[in-house]
Structures are given as structure tokens and as C-alpha cells.
Design a protein around this nucleic acid. Structure first.
Lengths: 177, 177
DNA sequence: TGAGATAGCTAAACGATCTAGCAATCAATC
DNA sequence: GATTGATTGCTAGATCGTTTAGCTATCTCA
């Protein structure tokens, strides 16, 4: 592992711009709306999520693209390379190489398509699925736990708020008309 | 813009594994805790955040690393290349080239360090700072708006919940003892 | 049966990182 | 003031993961 890789192990990843960088004097004169602690918390969750993805990648010995491929295979079930390429938004050539890597480390294998001899099917291995969920369990279990501690009323408050945040993102991503 | 790039414009990015892939029959026999709608909403926020980062990168004509560099420069103020390298967890060689790219498109410039002639200082340009905040405003403003609509009680509920989620991530990222 | 499209792959090119190493500079010590 | 060790930022070549271009095999449709 390179020196930079060793260092990354202990660092928080960069905080994403979305939900804005921590506001500093350097806004270039732009007055910014303020979300207070909640804005800071949402930013921190995004930062921690990125760190967790990297942790997961290391635990499973895969890079970011290969991890994304595994996530698709686990959530959708076996996929053809062209379907996987579409999900990952990379070319089919790159997808071939992603699949090569996943096969090489035991995360997936190729099978012939039952009716279309042009196609193959990429299947996640049982061991990979188990290892992935095992690595995810602290997070999934923790979020389930803190969610299930909420009263019905508090759950509705949180759900309504998160729905509003989703709406903000969706509108921010709409092309201007 | 390549065909794959054109396609990415319209796609949602891959859903991150953290907060778990959408649970499917393919859990390999692993029983998973369930966070219901709140879990799905948190996943969607992470996915939308990634999409927004990409949107921001396109709006500002920078790749992911360059965007991260800009975020650091805006939130911390001018930085030396070695400081920037540490923030980005890339080598100083790679950082030199990131700075080259930012300078080339008008996002930053290099200045001499006032007291240490080994060092330079990377300064974001006013135009870049303005453009960045302008691109961020729909998100920042939207989140501020939905946050400020909460009653004091609801705000506390949301803040407590988000603090719990942050705690879950932190514990999930702790090395095992 | 032939034409057009799809699938998955290979090869070469490209972009962004890496490591190794360099010259200039700084601070501490003698 | 000279020397030594460390730091800074850069260059050059190597590596990795993607791209585009193009290929053969296969499928569907008229």
C-alpha cells in the first residue's frame, strides 16, 4: 500500500460541496442562507458515507467502480454486461474489465445466457454476497436501531423532513426551463 | 462529450452501498435489519448528493478531484500545494497537476508565499468563488428553507435523529479492537 | 436469405494518478 | 558563517482504469 493509501486510511474524506462547504469568510461577498446545525449534520453524514464506501471497498478488496458493480449485482440479481454497463454509466469495454477483476478476486462469475448466445450473465458469488452484507451490517443494523427507537410522531417528523430534503435535491437537479 | 458522458447526464448515479442496497431476495440468506422508509430516504439523499456533485462539476467544468480542491480552497481559504495534497489525500505531484488544471480554467492562481520562498499559495479566483456559490445556491437555499420551516420541537427531533445517524457511521468506521 | 442491430470482447489511446528523484529553500546546530 | 537534515513543489516515467474504434458471433425481422 502506498504512502498516500496508508494516509487515506486514517483521513476523513473531503466534505462534498453539496449542502455547501463550511461557510467561511471566503464567500466572495455572496450572502448565504443558513441551515444551522442541521445543515452541518447533513454535510457530515455525506462525508461519513463517502468514508464508509472507501472502508467497504478496502474490506472487499475492490475499487469504487467494482464496488458499485457489486452493489448492482446484489440488489438487482445477475445482470448481463451491457445491463451492468448501463447501470455503471461506463462503456462495455470498461465493463468487461470490471467483470474480469470481480471474477479474479472471487466476487462474481460469468455464465452463459440461457437463450441468447451473444449474451453472458454475471452472477455474484454467495461468498461475495455474505461478505458484503457482513461488512454492511454495522451500518444497516445501527440505522435500523436508531430508527426503531423513534416514537410514531417523531418518525413522521423525520420522514417529512427527509422528504423535503429529497425534494430540494430534485429541484436543484432539474434543468432550468 | 462522449456518448457515455451524454448518457450520464440523464442517469441517476449508482446508489451507494452504505445504508444498504435496496434489499432484494439476493441477500444470500442473511437476515437484514430494516429501517423502512427512513432508510430508503437516507439512501436516496446519498444518491442525489452524488448526482449533485456531478452536476456541480459539469457546471464548473471540473472533474471530481478538482472540485474537491475547489471546495477546500473556498472553505479554508488559500492553501499551499502540500496542504491541499493532504486535504485531497493525493501526492504532491498529482496536486501540482490539479492546480495546473484549475489555473487553466480560471478557478485559481498561484502566488508566492510571503515568507517562505519554497512555498507557493493557491488562491481561488473571485469569479470561481462566485460561480461556485451560484451553482450551490438552489441546494443551500432549499435546505435552509425546509430547515427554517420546522418548529423548535421538530427541529430538536430532527437534530437528535441526525446526531444518532452520525454516531452510527462513526461506530461503523471505528477499527475493531 | 439477407440486412440491420445487439452483445461482448480486444487493442490502442487517453487522463489522472502513482513513485522516484531533483533543485531550491529553510531551520537548527556547531 | 557553514553544514546538515528536512521541506517544498516540481518533472519524468510508470501504472491503472477509462475511452474510442472496430471486430466476430448472434439475433430478429422483412
Amino acid at each position: 500500500m502506498s504512502r498516500v493509501e496508508e494516509k487515506r486510511k486514517s483521513d476523513s474524506p473531503v466534505e462534498p460541496a453539496s449542502l455547501a462547504p463550511a461557510i467561511s469568510a471566503n464567500t466572495g461577498g455572496v450572502a448565504l442562507p443558513d441551515s444551522g446545525l442541521i445543515g452541518a449534520q447533513l454535510r457530515e453524514i455525506l462525508t461519513l458515507s463517502t468514508a464508509f464506501e472507501r472502508h467497504l471497498g478496502r474490506a472487499l478488496s475492490v475499487n469504487d467502480t467494482d464496488l458499485a458493480a457489486m452493489e448492482h449485482l446484489i440488489s438487482h440479481g445477475p445482470l448481463s454486461p451491457s445491463e451492468l454497463a448501463r447501470h455503471l454509466t461506463i462503456s462495455t469495454a470498461a465493463t468487461t474489465i470490471v467483470i474480469d477483476r470481480l471474477v479474479a478476486v472471487g466476487h462474481a462469475h460469468r455464465e452463459a445466457h440461457p437463450h441468447d448466445r451473444r449474451k453472458i450473465v454475471v452472477v455474484p458469488t454467495p461468498a461475495s454476497v455474505r461478505a458484503t452484507f457482513e461488512a454492511l451490517m454495522p451500518l444497516i443494523g445501527g440505522v435500523a436501531s436508531v430508527t426503531n427507537e423513534l416514537s410514531a410522531e417523531d418518525r413522521r417528523t423525520v420522514t417529512d423532513f427527509l422528504a423535503s430534503v429529497v425534494g430540494v435535491y430534485r429541484r436543484a437537479l432539474e434543468p432550468p426551463v
